[in-house]
């Protein structure tokens, strides 16, 4: 791009930019890494290697810079979620809304995570992923299954979305922009 556009961006970044630290957690194979890929580069792929540990990625959307911590969801990594969620602006919890058998486990892990003192008042965004599949749970079902109504003292939102069809991702981004500073 020509040099003056980048100069302009730098200026506008100086005056209008917002940033947000985001941690993405959730059970394995719920679509966390896909979310980062779709948000970051707009690419969706059927084959995503399971994350070992975590990945970190900086994504710029408009005048918002998102620093995204994508944490692995396999059981052996769940104890480390708290370490990467403390100090962030938003926690995103992704659920596979098609895999209803795992809702109990997801509910347990979510509430386990939120019970940490260090994470008090951090806004929570719950995404029911894979709504392009038949027979997925609706937002209301998710709220019930994950007992989101019992969460107190923090902003909680829940959207149903799909990384594959990119459905509803625009409102997710809006929500994130709202919570950045």
């Amino acid at each position: 791009m020509p040099w003056y556009t980048s100069l302009f961006q730098w200026f506008s970044g100086l005056f209008f930019s917002k940033t947000a630290d985001i941690s993405i957690v959730g059970l394995q194979a719920s679509g966390k890494t896909s979310f980062v890929n779709v948000i970051g580069s707009g690419q969706w792929s059927e084959e995503v290697v399971p994350t070992v540990g975590f990945n970190v990625r900086n994504v710029r959307k408009g005048n918002v810079t998102l620093k995204i911590w994508d944490i692995a969801g396999q059981p052996k990594f769940r104890s480390t979620w708290e370490r990467y969620c403390s100090g962030v602006d938003v926690i995103i919890f992704i659920v596979d809304s098609h895999d209803k058998e795992k809702f109990d486990a997801a509910q347990f892990e979510l509430h386990q995570l939120l019970s940490h003192q260090t994470l008090a008042a951090v806004p929570l965004l719950v995404l029911g992923n894979k709504n392009d599949l038949e027979d997925h749970a609706s937002v209301n079902e998710l709220i019930k299954a994950l007992e989101l109504d019992k969460i107190r003292n923090r902003a909680v939102s829940c959207y149903s979305c799909s990384m594959k069809s990119q459905h509803n991702l625009d409102i997710v981004l809006q929500w994130l922009t709202k919570h950045s500073h």
């Binding site: 994350t51 070992v52 540990g53 975590f54 692995a72 052996k76 480390t80």
Partner: peptide, 12 residues
């Protein structure tokens, strides 16, 4: 403990 967390980052 849990040093395995950095595997992905290192592999990258």
């Amino acid at each position: 403990e849990d040093v395995i967390m950095v595997t992905s980052s290192i592999m990258k």
